[in-house]
Design a protein around this nucleic acid. Sequence first.
DNA 1: TAAAAAACCGACTAAACAGTCAATTTGTGT
DNA 2: ACACAAATTGACTGTTTAGTCGGTTTTTTA
Lengths: 185, 185
Amino acid sequence: MDKRTKLMLTAKKLFSKHGFYGTATARIAKEAGVSNGILFHYFSTKDKLIEAMYFDVKDRIFHYSLGQIYKDATLKESFYTLWLAAVEWNLENPEDFDFMLQFENSPFYSLEIEKSHKYVQMTMELAEQGIEQGEFKFVSPLILVQVVAGLVDTTVKFLRMNEDLQQDTEYKNKLFEIVWDAIKK
Amino acid sequence: MDKRTKLMLTAKKLFSKHGFYGTATARIAKEAGVSNGILFHYFSTKDKLIEAMYFDVKDRIFHYSLGQIYKDATLKESFYTLWLAAVEWNLENPEDFDFMLQFENSPFYSLEIEKSHKYVQMTMELAEQGIEQGEFKFVSPLILVQVVAGLVDTTVKFLRMNEDLQQDTEYKNKLFEIVWDAIKK
DNA sequence: TAAAAAACCGACTAAACAGTCAATTTGTGT
DNA sequence: ACACAAATTGACTGTTTAGTCGGTTTTTTA
């Protein structure tokens, strides 16, 4: 594995456990088994490393989740697939989840960063579609996207504390009804 | 104003703008107009200061929001009052809001802390009531509480970016329908 | 009003930190 | 085989940091 990747994996592990504040760059390099200098060769500052990791994680989760949607699915099916894929991905990648939560709620994060992301447009289009078809509530498509994203986080946090429910498909369907009822007209 | 309060107000301002990582204790003391030493007289460590602030803010917002509920209100009215009060309080106290978001999504925060909070029980009871009366979805009362709390955050973030909607009662009612539909059977 | 306690000061320190850099190794194209 | 570029090292540094401490002022108590 190349050292850039090793650094990002180690950084993710440490950031998610100890926070940005509690993780020294020297420690990241040491635990990744590379030299101190190479970290700053790939990422000119600590902040740049954090930002690069954000884009990397966001990319992977959206690529995975959007990839699960199949053609000719109804709007509800698409949203169900999207929601479930995101929830399961986050449960299987707890470090990524913790890192993202921390990042998105820190002063590092601005909406400029968010908006620059290609996948946001794609989910917005789904929401707009639902509104036009009269299936969703007549509100800003942005709030609908944010509601779904927020409910993914809420669900993941809840299922983490209730491991026995993680495999319970029936219960997860009930949890999805929360999401669907929230956005549907 | 006593120096302990001055310190907490200044810390809140700086933490919300620059994060825990980006705010030095010396700077907090300086901008609060007090000596460096007195900070550690009141809060033995920086982490203790952060935690004390969390309890302080949480206390005030819950005290305010729960206080808005009137006797003999229906369950829906109670939830509406609670949700609206929380949203408006957060909009009027953006530093508190940013601080809380940061804290609750950082490794500082554990569910042990959350559970130790007296107000959590009170909202849980409201949720249990709704479930027993058959008015809410038949899921864990905890997820219902977390859904409402999460949707408060989502709403606040959204209204912050759309200042023109902040006074629009009709629109806010529509946003509440998202919350209500999410939890109601 | 005296003495005890609590609040308060700011200079100080030891450790930790992000980022640099000159030197060395590894890879690549000719 | 050679030259040139890119990757990599780890010791180093100037600064910043949380937290300490001996001493002073203010408040409380009896």
